[in-house]
Simulated assay, not measured.
Amino acid sequence: MPRALMLHEEAPRCRVIDLASTDLPHRAVSVDIDYSDLNYKDALAVTGKGKIVRDYPFVPGIDFAGTVRESHHEQYAPGDRVILTGWGVGERYWGGYAETMNVDAEWLVPCPQPLSMRKAMLLGTAGLTAMLCVLRLEAAGLPAGSAVLVTGATGGVGSWAVSILHHLGYEVHAVTGKIEQHDWLERLGARQVLDRSEFEGQPRPLEKGRWIGAIDSVGGLTLANVLARMEYHGLVAAVGLAGGTDLPTTVMPFILRGVSLLGTDSVMIPFEHRRAAWHRLSALPNGLFERMAVDEIGLDRIEERAEAMLAGKVHGRVLINPKR
């Protein structure tokens, strides 16, 4: 009987329980899960502080990596290594905080060699999103070796963005409010670490241009301030809303400097784009994974770490081993 973290409307909200195989959803592919992870959206779902989950009881977890146990779809066979991110899993459909889960074949991506299950979830939605941002910037013409700003740099997306951009030869400037993590960001590859407060005030329509590229995982005032500081024909990949959904900017960066705001989605992105991003991720050197801050936990500690993440007390990645 697989164990799972189950959410309930009544207290206690989070309970680790044993599921019968008949309790699992009736879907084409059954996967034995090796690892999952904890993302900001997961933290909102687990704590109930965001309107992520609407139907109860519910198994959360927007990501997982594992091995196919049983398949009723021609695309996958028992023993195949697979990754799942997005598609509403962990929001509308039961997700990865379990030892085994049944899912639709269309939600899966083959795990490319030489990526291990553990490395796949050290990346997870965070690493995938960071790579998708890099691909958007590259496709838009980001000059090789140019200066790129990364906001929310100690979070999952931000820290992977810093690592990947540095590995690709860009000059990375990282923004964080966590002074104690400056040294770690520099080890990841940040040339300069900037204080978050510089980007939290009311933005002017335009400031001195400082960066040709940026990856923003915060939104709100932070994104508005970033846009005002982009150089001529600057490129900004926007992917987050931790700082709010409003964008209090003007048209000035767009019509006077030709700045481009590149929306980046990781939830519904088509299979071929998703697979291409995972192949790029699978080629990353081991050193990037070794420098990533990792907290590996079992199902019983997810609620605690979710609260800590929403309180800004987590940096790097939280890896979940459901068998731990």
Results as ranks from 00 to 15, higher is better:
Thr250Pro: 02
His8Ser: 15
Asp216Thr: 06
Trp87Asp: 01
Leu149Met: 14
Glu307Val: 11
Asp195Met: 00
Arg27Pro: 04
Arg13Gln: 13
Ala147Glu: 12
His173Asn: 11
Pro60Ile: 10
Phe271Gln: 10
His315Met: 04
Leu221Tyr: 00
Glu91Ala: 10
Pro12Met: 14
Val193Gln: 09
Ala228Pro: 07
Gly95Trp: 13
Pro248Ser: 10
Thr264Arg: 11
His233Thr: 15
Tyr93Ala: 00
Arg291Tyr: 07
Arg69Phe: 02
Val175Pro: 10
Thr151Asp: 08
Trp107Ile: 04
Ile83Cys: 05
Arg3Asn: 08
Gln113Ser: 04
Gly88Cys: 02
Leu247Trp: 05
Trp211His: 07
Val294His: 00
Val157Ser: 02
Ser146Met: 05
Arg15Tyr: 12
Thr129Pro: 02
Thr100Gly: 04
Glu198Met: 08
Pro112Trp: 02
Gln202Met: 05
Leu235Lys: 13
Ser217Ala: 15
Asp104Pro: 06
Leu165Ala: 12
Gly124Ala: 15
Asp32Glu: 15
Leu168Tyr: 13
Ile255Leu: 12
Asp42Ser: 11
Leu168Trp: 07
Glu9Met: 09
Asn102Phe: 03
Ala311Glu: 14
Met101His: 00
Lys119Val: 00
Glu186Gln: 13
Gly127Lys: 03
Ala283Met: 07
Gly90Ala: 03
Glu186Ser: 10
Ala306Phe: 02
Tyr56Val: 15
Phe58Asp: 04
Glu303His: 11
Met1His: 02
Glu307Ala: 11
Tyr76Gln: 11
Thr245Asn: 14
Gly79His: 00
Pro248Tyr: 06
Gly66His: 05
Pro78Lys: 00
Val134Trp: 04
Val29Gln: 09
Ile302Trp: 02
His279Gln: 06
Lys51Ile: 14
Leu256Thr: 15
Arg301Phe: 01
Asp80Trp: 04
Arg324Leu: 13
Leu24Ala: 11
Lys119Met: 11
